[in-house]
Design a protein around this nucleic acid. Structure first.
Length: 263
DNA sequence: GCGACAG
DNA sequence: ATCTTGTCGC
């Protein structure tokens, strides 16, 4: 029997296997469609996504964890693995990671109201970091939560040491995000709206998802799931492997597990 | 021309 | 991203 999952099946926005020049041109084009006003309804479910790479096995593993809000309890967990498609190129991260993340998202039963992505939102050279790109593709509000800076400047002196303090991230005279102290005396996070959300609201949700760690809980859980080879928890993990990303439905195995270690 | 450069 | 031991601080 087949499992029901979200059918986001519609005409694909675009191809993913593009040459550098085409990818850059596409980012400029897509950035024009980003909406930075809040288009959120009641937020009951927030998803966190992250990736892990295993060069040795040429495997890319994407993880998505759906959590209830504001309780922040795990509702669903999915891991999607496939061959690595592209090398990492600063500014073109989404072309390497988004396809896998989308594969993981297609396993979700419950559609999230908000997504926290590991990487930049619009705080990107062409204003289309992976957070913004995923928001456009999925048509769901997204927030970019990066652990380091890609582009932009900020007043390091004015950033307080206490959790909750933040300063704007500026680029070309414009505010493209915020440098947020998510934990006292710990390196800040670089937050920027992805799509269908404002910067103020983005910061609000990131702080509301804080559990005393540097990473907001949804992202932290996804990070753990993509890296850990075992999951000694209560909730099961849906593990899907696509052995041929070039031919999506050729070989695909999907299993429920609570213990896994494929590398 | 010279650096900087998410994960 | 991944590698990789001990160690400083609340």
């Amino acid at each position: 029997m087949k499992k029901r999952m979200l059918k986001m099946a519609r005409t694909p926005l675009h191809e993913w296997n593009l040459k550098t020049e085409a990818a850059i041109a596409l980012q400029h084009e897509l950035a024009q469609h980003i909406v930075l006003e809040d288009h959120l309804g009641e937020v009951r479910f927030i998803a966190g996504v992250d990736m892990a790479i295993n060069e040795e096995h040429n495997a890319a593993r994407a993880a998505v964890v759906l959590m209830s809000f504001p309780e922040l309890e795990i509702v669903e967990r999915h891991v999607y693995e496939e061959p690595i498609r592209m090398p990492y190129v600063p500014g073109l991260l989404s072309f390497r990671e988004a396809p896998s993340v989308i594969g993981a998202f297609e396993q979700l039963r419950q559609k999230p109201d908000l997504i926290m992505v590991d990487g930049q939102g619009i705080a990107h050279p062409r204003r289309l970091g992976i957070g913004a790109h995923l928001g456009l593709w999925l048509e769901i509000p997204t927030i970019g939560c990066a652990k380091s800076l890609l582009t932009g400047k900020y007043d390091k002196e004015k950033l307080g040491e206490e959790a909750g303090s933040w300063v704007p991230l500026i680029s070309r005279k414009e505010t493209i995000g915020a440098v947020v102290r998510t934990r006292t005396r710990v390196n800040p996070m670089f937050i920027s709206p992805g799509h269908l959300i404002s910067l103020e609201t983005s910061i609000r949700y990131v702080l509301a998802c804080g559990k005393g760690y540097r990473l907001p809980e949804p992202t932290r859980q996804a990070d753990k799931l993509s890296k850990d080879n075992t999951t000694p928890d209560n909730t099961d993990v849906n593990f899907t492997i696509n052995y041929s990303s070039s031919q999506p439905d050729t070989k695909n195995m999907n299993v429920q597990v609570n213990q896994f270690k494929l590398w």
